[in-house]
């Protein structure tokens, strides 16, 4: 066992982990942040996507010990627990971008990262290509694509509002 210290959703965390502990195991099993899911064992489905130092990564394919000093953001930390939803979360609800909800946290974290990299005006083609690493079995993606386009636009307003404060 070795200790690892990192920041998760803005809070400092120190945990004792086995070297083979994956980030997703640290999150789910030790920190009880169960919003991050595991849907495959080949790093393809994207149900486990979180942000590490501001970038989307697959938490099933990174060791907890690789994250010493890192800043991790999970779906639980995207918006304050008692505050308003993140615009991307709201867009998923408004556009019925989810059914069973299992892939949803990964989808939303991927979508937020997509906006960071690709901006607020996302066309359908771009969104569909960018979702290569996120598999949904329920929605046929139609409403996920709509949700991400709407969420990306809404994030611009959110950013403007935040900047004005």
């Amino acid at each position: 066992m070795a200790a690892v210290s990192l920041t998760v959703n803005g809070k400092p965390v120190t945990a004792d982990v086995d070297s083979r502990t994956l980030l997703v195991q640290l999150l789910r099993e030790q920190l009880r942040l169960t919003g991050t899911h595991v849907g495959c064992d080949t790093s393809q489905c994207g149900a486990c996507v979180v942000h590490v130092n501001g970038r989307a990564v697959k938490s099933c394919t990174i060791l907890a010990l690789q994250l010493e000093g890192a800043n991790v953001l999970t779906i639980e930390g995207l918006a304050p627990a008692d505050g308003p939803l993140h615009p991307m979360q709201e867009a998923f609800r408004e556009n019925h971008g989810l059914q069973c909800g299992y892939c949803t946290p990964g989808m939303i974290m991927t979508a937020v990262d997509m906006v960071r990299r690709k901006g607020h005006d996302l066309d359908d083609h771009t969104i569909r290509e960018e979702l290569e690493g996120n598999i949904c079995r329920c929605t046929g993606y139609h409403n996920i694509v709509k949700a991400i386009a709407a969420g990306a636009r809404a994030m611009r307003h959110g950013a403007t509002a935040a900047a004005a404060e």
Partner: peptide
């Protein structure tokens, strides 16, 4: 009508068996 169940799923607070 927008779905009532979505609040927990979009915030990572769903409750699946492995959770």
């Amino acid at each position: 009508v927008r779905r009532k169940e979505d609040q927990r799923f979009i915030t990572g607070r769903g409750h699946y068996t492995d959770d």
